[in-house]
């Protein structure tokens, strides 16, 4: 597969290591009251869609950026890729 790296253009998937569901970016607050429940969900529960999936790829043999790649798991069509850092910052309420 070819991953459309937002800064470097199309790169072969062989340069990357795959992690999984991009929901891993949204780590719960470990000091909160309900941490036990929220962490159980975070560590163990996953949607496993046959279709469009947002997932984390690490450009290990490249620039070592983590990317959030939107990929259709049934056709392997890749609809887009962003720097995970940008996705994470946006989720936390804007770039810093």
């Amino acid at each position: 597969m070819l991953i459309p790296h937002p800064l470097l253009g199309l790169r072969d998937a062989q340069e990357f290591t795959y992690l999984g569901d991009a929901s891993l970016i949204h780590r719960p607050d470990g000091m909160a009251e309900n941490a036990a429940e929220t962490f159980f969900d975070y560590v163990y529960l996953r949607d496993n869609p046959a279709g469009v999936h947002r997932e984390l790829w690490f450009h290990e043999q490249g620039d070592r950026s983590w990317l959030v790649v939107t990929r259709d798991t049934t056709t392997h069509e890749i609809l887009g890729a962003e720097l995970a850092r940008d996705v994470a910052l946006a989720a936390k309420g804007g770039a810093q």
């Binding site: 891993l24 970016i25 950026s65 850092r85 994470a88 936390k92």
Partner: peptide, 18 residues
């Protein structure tokens, strides 16, 4: 060594980019 470095970059870029 490799996996821990990857793990640290994950924490840096994805968990605590701020």
């Amino acid at each position: 060594a490799g996996p821990v470095y990857r793990h640290m970059e994950f924490a840096r870029q994805c968990l605590w980019p701020e």
